[in-house]
Design a protein around this nucleic acid. Structure first.
Lengths: 300, 300
DNA sequence: AAAATGTTTTTTCCCGATAAAAGACATTAC
DNA sequence: GTAATGTCTTTTATCGGGAAAAAACATTTT
């Protein structure tokens, strides 16, 4: 078993959802673009859909025969890529108790525990290293630096530097730039979410990420844009395992975003700076307050 | 052949140079620390030294029998790690003519060309991706973004942001911090180099890196410190293949560094900021002027 | 002839295996 | 009894191979 077919399975599931909407499927290249996979994979999907009686397939005609049933779908867990599986396992360990700074990370042990080859674990660790949480000793093990208070402070320092600059660049964008329409759409989504915050507060994370990425993109600097990956990763996992006060936290953040959006639309540098600072400050507070006090770096 | 023994060969060569200085070698653990390798490797080295009549080895006594001869050394090219070999080959391609933005990068082709396994190339590309010059298409090839004017501008933008902040932090460091002694030493080295610039101008690169790293370290922020890797890599390769006006360029830079050092020692924030800005500005100019005009990003 | 389908080739992703190197444990020397 | 040496075990670095997925090429359909 050298490579799982999760790409196929995931695309198959997504394709099933398309069946509900139409009576017949489009051409193979079109489906490929739609699903983000190659024609090879599209044809595998169509083959199986034909076999299981979902469609009748003859060259260009792909007629839907019946609606998909729950058992037609591949199980969710089989649609994840190896990288995602490894990332999740690793993050669970990292944020769990007992993951102290200075700890060694063993590729072989990780691989065995997760049930994957060492190559995949190595590649993951190399990719992950840019988040600043682990460090490699040449020809030897990785060292965990730990999700410490220091890490959070260093992260937010850069974030604030980058976002203040991006926000200023955003506000200076010409009137006819497409970003203003994007911002308007995000504003509407924020208002909707604000009005139903009691039930939909957990949808904030995703909106938050889209909003900040839009702002960072205005910097037109790949290093700033890429750095948001670090922030997004930390927030994603950290809040996934730390639900305390989530609702109230998000309620406050939505309002801050709305003020921030208003400031951007005013295009007044002073107002933008103030609104941005205010939001970043409370974001930092939230992150810091959720780091256990005991989680300190060990002396080297 | 699964792994080359370049660690051993490199450490062996370095150990040979130690023979000149002493009549007998220290203990195995001590040698290990000195050479930065494990005892296992130290023992391999000692074995060979005994075999080739360089030392007499019996338990604790390791007496030097003769001075090392040129033929005792392993060839230089056998002491490089695979990662270094791949990096050099890749950078040569990248900075050569014809490496246009948008070009595809083929792991298999690279591996065959360099004569290594695909795994090593993959790992290299993942590590290299943080430099912002290449980008991965999921389940598909890498795309070259190219060493363009835009790249240089984005890089220097961050560099300037980080270095101004680091320099300010540096100047604010307490009198008894160890960095002031480090700075003094660097100042002496700068003065020495300045006085012999006509013959030693090519030693500037290394000094430059040590100087800027010292400053960046004052930020106490891992993201700032790590970002210097990007700068160092670009400067290293770029100047290696671009020797135009090297002497004059370095002569100017040394003087700027000396002014910068003086400003830091004055601990006057205004002076530090001015000296830092001046140096960064000329560094940016130098980098930009050396990028061929034709090297522009292609429309997506 | 443009765009689809059918077929073949190439590349990516991932595993298992193996030598190099590190690390751990046992024993000896000072 | 500390610190070295001697020996054994584990981990890392790297390759080759094979299935999944992409990409390229050939053929047909509209």
């Amino acid at each position: 078993m050298s490579k799982s077919n999760n790409v196929y399975k995931d695309a198959f599931n997504r394709c099933l959802r398309l069946l509900d909407e139409t009576k017949s499927l489009p051409s193979e290249p079109e489906l490929g673009t739609l699903l983000g996979v190659s024609r090879t994979t599209v044809r595998s999907i169509l083959s199986r859909m034909e076999e299981t009686g979902l469609i009748a397939w003859n060259k260009r005609s792909k007629t839907v025969l019946r609606a998909p049933r729950p058992e037609d779908f591949f199980p969710e867990e089989e649609t994840d890529s190896l990288a995602e599986i490894i990332e999740r396992s690793f993050m669970r360990r990292l944020l769990a108790e007992g993951a102290e700074a200075g700890m060694q990370i063993n590729e072989l042990e990780l691989a065995r525990e997760i049930g994957v080859g060492t190559t995949s674990v190595r590649e993951f660790l190399i990719r992950f290293s840019r988040f600043g949480l682990i460090e490699k000793r040449r020809n030897s093990h990785w060292v965990l630096k730990g999700f410490t208070r220091a890490f959070a402070l260093e992260l937010t320092e850069i974030r604030e530097m980058f976002e203040l600059r991006s926000a200023a660049a955003f506000a200076a964008l010409p009137e006819d730039s497409a970003v203003w329409a994007d911002l308007d759409r995000l504003e509407v989504e924020h208002r909707q979410l604000a009005s139903e915050i009691a039930t939909r507060f957990n949808e904030f994370s995703e909106l938050d990420e889209r909003f900040h990425r839009l702002i960072h993109r205005a910097s037109h600097n790949r290093f700033i844009v890429d750095f948001y990956d670090v922030i997004a990763m930390i927030f994603h996992y950290h809040y996934q395992w730390n639900k305390a006060e989530e609702r109230q936290r998000n309620e406050v953040a939505v309002q801050e975003h709305l003020a921030y959006i208003a400031a951007l639309k005013s295009r007044d540098p002073g107002k933008v700076d103030a609104a941005c600072r205010k939001h970043l400050k409370s974001a930092r507070q939230t992150l810091l307050s959720s780091i256990p006090e005991g989680r300190q770096a060990q002396p080297a």
